[in-house]
Amino acid sequence: MAIKKFLDKGLEAVIMTRKRNRKPTHPGYFFKVDVLAANNVSISEAARTLGVSRKHLSAFVNEKVPCSRDLAKRLALATETSIASWLSMQAAVDVWEAEHDDSAHYDAVGKIAFG
């Protein structure tokens, strides 16, 4: 209910139009630095612990693939963190990339009139 009152005050435009200048940290980089390196754990060892392939985990920590719901759950269980924290980090990266994507195929998108 509190969030509805907040949005009813016309602040949703401020929330929805805020853009970051810097790309958010990819969750894979965070995992590589703050979990693997900090605990001297190899990608191969972590992949076995998580039940994923070494190739996939390597792609994740090198920021080549996003954090899926499945991987977020595995990371959360293994690190005693929340699934939401991993997915929120990924969502921040996704939003930043979408906001900074100036691909020409979006030029054809029109406006929808709201009445």
Results as ranks from 00 to 15, higher is better:
14 V>T: 08
6 F>D: 01
64 K>I: 03
70 D>V: 07
50 L>R: 02
114 F>C: 02
47 A>K: 07
95 V>A: 09
21 N>C: 08
66 P>S: 14
104 A>Q: 11
8 D>R: 07
39 N>Y: 09
70 D>A: 12
15 I>E: 03
22 R>M: 15
54 R>D: 14
54 R>E: 15
18 R>Q: 11
80 E>M: 02
73 K>E: 12
41 V>D: 00
10 G>V: 08
108 A>P: 01
103 S>Y: 08
19 K>A: 07
61 V>H: 01
6 F>L: 12
37 A>N: 12
9 K>R: 11
54 R>I: 11
6 F>R: 02
3 I>T: 10
14 V>N: 01
15 I>A: 05
35 V>E: 07
4 K>I: 14
111 K>D: 12
29 Y>N: 05
2 A>Q: 08
55 K>W: 06
35 V>M: 07
26 H>K: 06
49 T>L: 13
108 A>Q: 12
75 L>M: 09
18 R>S: 06
94 D>F: 01
69 R>E: 15
25 T>K: 12
38 A>Q: 13
23 K>A: 13
4 K>G: 04
106 Y>R: 12
94 D>M: 04
64 K>H: 11
39 N>W: 11
61 V>P: 02
107 D>C: 04
101 D>V: 03
70 D>K: 06
99 E>T: 05
68 S>W: 01
111 K>P: 00
110 G>R: 11
65 V>E: 09
15 I>Q: 03
12 E>M: 14
2 A>S: 14
108 A>K: 13
73 K>H: 06
71 L>V: 04
106 Y>K: 14
102 D>Y: 15
60 F>D: 03
17 T>S: 08
24 P>Q: 10
5 K>R: 06
62 N>T: 09
107 D>N: 14
85 S>F: 11
16 M>I: 07
84 A>C: 03
108 A>F: 13
74 R>C: 04
108 A>V: 15
109 V>D: 02
82 S>R: 05
84 A>P: 01
89 M>H: 04
3 I>H: 06
4 K>L: 15
51 G>H: 05
101 D>K: 06
76 A>M: 06
93 V>G: 05
5 K>N: 13
104 A>N: 08
3 I>Y: 08
45 E>S: 14
103 S>A: 13
